[in-house]
């Protein structure tokens, strides 16, 4: 290996500063206003479907997640983040592909049986998910000090990826790993980027995504698997 590469640090590959990055959230919120309401409805709907928990609800969760991957990939990543950070465009395509694949799975996968979950488990997963999706967008506000930078699920990729990992548990185990790869790689990329940018508060979101994705890959509960 060329020893010259050892002299490079992550900051040598980052061509923008924290001001530009945090402005991305402000800009997209300004541009899509008042359609943020759809993102809020999606969060509540996914929470409700997690509580319901049957096969139809699972299809609904996957379709809504697919829409979130598509929206945040084609919107935030390709249109806003990509012009200042080229890898974000590549991730944008990956998010779109993930959304398309998830749509196919949601529509065509045949669940023969679904393990029963207790009402308590369903309610806590649904409410827990909504609470996390409600609070994590505020981390960009804490970082920037600007309410307009709130990072909504389905609109912005970091919160979308975080919210996606628990939702992937509704997938049959034999294909679940496929949909956890992108959150894993995105989490790694974002931790490195946000740490180098110095936006340390925001690192919490991709770090949590990364940890959850690893846990989901290593410890997939058998009760959620497809027994068909």
């Amino acid at each position: 290996m060329d020893s010259n590469w050892l002299s490079y640090s992550l900051s040598d590959f980052l061509m923008f500063g924290p001001e530009v990055f945090l402005r991305l959230f402000v800009r997209i919120n300004q541009d899509i206003w008042p359609w943020q309401g759809i993102a809020v409805i999606m969060v509540v709907a996914i929470g409700a479907l997690l509580v319901r928990g049957d096969i139809l609800a699972r299809r609904g969760i996957l379709l809504l997640m697919a829409a979130a991957w598509l929206w945040s990939g084609a919107g935030f990543l390709m249109e806003y983040y990509g012009p200042v950070n080229l890898p974000a465009t590549w991730f944008g395509w990956a998010f779109v592909l993930q959304g398309a694949l998830l749509t196919v799975v949601a529509l065509v996968w045949r669940w023969d049986t679904v393990a029963e979950q207790s009402a308590m488990a369903r309610w806590s997963s649904g409410i827990g998910w909504v609470v996390i999706m409600g609070l994590s967008p505020l981390l960009t506000v804490a970082q920037s000090g600007n309410w307009h930078s709130v990072a909504l699920f389905a609109v912005t990729p970091h919160v979308t990826a975080l919210g996606a990992v628990p939702c992937m548990l509704v997938l049959p185990r034999r294909i679940r790993w496929l949909f956890l790869l992108l959150p894993l790689v995105w989490g790694l990329f974002s931790v490195a980027t946000l740490w180098t940018l110095g936006t340390r508060v925001l690192v919490v979101i991709p770090a949590a995504t990364l940890a959850l994705a690893v846990l989901a890959l290593l410890f997939s509960p058998r009760r959620a698997q497809n027994r068909g």
């Binding site: 500063g17 530009v20 402005r23 800009r27």
Partner: peptide, 13 residues
């Protein structure tokens, strides 16, 4: 212009 002028389509910046 390294880092300083890479502001994408942000008209404010």
């Amino acid at each position: 212009t390294w880092r300083t002028f890479n502001v994408g389509g942000d008209q404010y910046l």
